[in-house]
Simulated scan of single mutants.
Amino acid sequence: IFNLVECVENESLQEMSVAGVYELLKTPYTGASPLSLGIALNKPLVKQLLTYHGIKTPKFQVFKFPEKILPREDMKYPLIVKPSREDASVGISDASVVYNFNELKKRVRYIFQEFDQPALVEEYIVGRELNVAVLGFKKPVVLPISEIDFSGLTQEMHKIVSYDAKWMHGTVAYEGTKGVCPAKLPSDTEAKLKDIAMRCFRIIGCRDYARVDFRLSAEGEPYVLEVNPNPDISDDAGFARSARTYGLTFVETVGKIVESALERSQ
């Protein structure tokens, strides 16, 4: 089975349940295990795991109750507020970046009202956004690094991949964010990003394909934003863009994923 399921009835948490059905049926399938999918969807847990392994992610705090919003003293504005158990930029908009306590309270409460889940609040890293794709299982390879070019956004807009930027064709956010591959990076920075991406791939237990999203600060320090064990691999998505730069057609990329899954099942 080529597993492309990301949710069931709009419930992202059920993504891992579908993979669990394949496991119960003892049916070979592509991609990550139920455990890895579940871990990756718990963004605070991923950040804790990466921090334990010495990998930098933005400082963060989880708010579990809308009436108890007390930010850590060492958290510096601006902050970005996200749902803690969603992917695909769900719940992220230009208003997600907040600059004071009143804006923070408003956005955290919005997350509870709209998504009925804790809010993840991170320090907002000003800098470049980079995507690092990994392909394979037994001998995975890191593909060329892709960058999100925000130059098409208006000056007032935050340089983030919002839900509109990812999915809403025709919006300023969508038209103003373009993927560029390969990203122009110093060789040592590129090597560092690829090494961290491979470490993340293994820590979270990814298989066959995955993508690690980074912010590269103005000082050149990489921060992991997310590890996605089930990224969009359609032919116009970032993963396929990196694969093409590596020298693979879309059909060859899909074939590599299938071969990796078959090799694992034998």
Rank of each mutant, 00 (worst) to 15 (best):
Gln48Ala: 15
Leu45Thr: 12
Ile69Cys: 02
Glu73Phe: 11
Ser96Asn: 05
Pro78Cys: 07
Arg107Ala: 08
Arg72Ser: 14
Pro58Glu: 02
Glu86Met: 13
Leu45Asn: 05
Phe65Lys: 14
Leu70His: 10
Ser36Asp: 00
Ile55His: 12
Glu67Ser: 12
Leu70Gln: 14
Ser96Asp: 05
Asp94Gln: 15
Asn100Val: 12
Gly91Asn: 08
Lys105Arg: 15
Asp87Gly: 15
Lys47Thr: 09
Lys68Arg: 11
Leu49Phe: 15
Gly54Pro: 11
Phe63Lys: 04
Pro83Thr: 10
Lys64His: 11
Tyr52Ile: 13
Gly31Arg: 05
Gln61Leu: 04
Ser36Gly: 01
Lys26Val: 07
Lys47Asn: 15
Val97Trp: 03
Ser84Thr: 09
Glu67Asn: 11
Lys47Leu: 09
Gln61Asp: 01
Gln48Gly: 04
Asp74Arg: 08
Lys26Met: 09
Ser96Ala: 14
Ser84Pro: 04
Glu73Cys: 02
Pro66Lys: 11
Ser33Thr: 15
Gly31His: 06
Lys43Leu: 06
Lys76Gly: 00
Asp74Leu: 02
Tyr52Asn: 13
Glu73Val: 11
Ala40Ile: 06
Phe101Gln: 07
Leu41Phe: 03
Asn100Lys: 03
Glu86Asn: 05
Asn100Trp: 10
Arg72Met: 12
Gly91Lys: 05
Met75Arg: 05
Tyr29Met: 06
Phe101Cys: 00
Met75Gly: 06
Gly91Leu: 04
Asn102Ser: 13
Val46Lys: 11
Ala40Cys: 12
Lys64Val: 06
Tyr29Arg: 04
Ser96Thr: 05
Tyr77Trp: 06
Pro44Gly: 05
Gly38Trp: 01
Pro83Met: 10
Gly31Met: 07
Val98Tyr: 05
Ala88Cys: 12
His53Cys: 12
Ser96Gln: 02
Phe60Trp: 15
Met75Asn: 02
Lys105Gln: 14
Ser89Gly: 08
Arg85Tyr: 14
Leu49Met: 15
Ala32Val: 01
Val62Gly: 01
Val90Leu: 15
Leu45Ser: 09
Glu67Phe: 10
Ser96Lys: 04
Leu35Thr: 10
Lys106Ala: 15
Pro28Met: 13
Pro71Gly: 12
Leu35Pro: 00
Ala88Tyr: 11
Lys106Ser: 15
Arg107Val: 01
Ala95Met: 09
Phe65Trp: 04
Pro58Gly: 06
Pro34Arg: 06
Pro66Val: 04
Gly38Met: 06
Ile92Gly: 01
Lys56Tyr: 10
Val90Trp: 08
Leu37Gln: 08
Ser89Ile: 00
Lys64Met: 03
